[in-house]
């Protein structure tokens, strides 16, 4: 992680530690998130970080809970949420779910689209993620998500580095890296 983010994190960590049990002043907490994840007007700081503005509330909440319990492993996120209580996690998730999704301009090649469409038929993705990949409730929106994050996540699921969704792990197990890459570009460009 780059230095500005580290600093922000340290600051934010301190801020969060102080505000922890109150669950108040969500704006201050959100500043910490913004540092890495951007917001409705700015993309995340790194291609591998997910957009969270406009993401489904319940999905965000479950991810934050899973980071806190270690079920989903990520050093940074674990530090961020370590001392936050349930109410605060809910409030953060609620806050971000109410923001509009930022404008994106990702593209995918014809070949990538074709490969992705085959994969989608095979895995029946739209059954849960719905026809426009907009997600709902416990199922995340994938449409216009950062391709770098999507690719990393699908690979993490495939290689069992991300363990908090057993079903997705099983699904990606025998997806080729190539089709994962194509899928990531396709979804980002929707």
């Amino acid at each position: 992680m780059r230095l500005p983010q580290l600093l922000l994190l340290a600051l934010g960590g301190a801020l969060l530690a102080a505000e922890v049990r109150a669950g108040e002043d969500i704006e201050a907490l959100a500043e910490v998130c913004r540092g890495c994840h951007g917001d409705e007007n700015a993309l995340p700081a790194d291609p591998a970080y997910p957009i969270i503005a406009g993401q489904e509330f319940y999905y965000l909440y479950v991810q934050l809970k899973d980071f806190r319990s270690g079920l989903r492993e990520n050093e940074t996120m674990q530090e961020v949420v370590a001392d936050l209580d349930r109410a605060t996690l809910k409030a953060i998730a609620q806050y971000w779910s109410e923001k509009p999704w930022p404008k994106t301009a990702f593209t995918a090649s014809e070949e990538e689209v074709q490969q992705a469409e085959q994969a989608i038929v095979s895995a029946e993705c739209t059954a849960c993620h719905l026809s426009a990949f907009e997600g709902n409730s416990r199922v995340p929106r994938l449409a216009n998500q950062q391709p770098g994050y999507l690719e990393k996540t699908m690979l993490d699921l495939k290689y069992k580095r991300r363990r908090n969704s057993p079903n997705m792990m099983a699904l990606f197990k025998d997806f080729s890296e190539e089709s994962i890459r194509a899928l990531a570009r396709y979804l980002a460009a929707l």
Partner: peptide, 12 residues
């Protein structure tokens, strides 16, 4: 969470 104990894949 979704718990299929594996996956079903349609054969494209």
């Amino acid at each position: 969470k979704l718990w299929l104990g594996g996956a079903f894949k349609v054969i494209p």
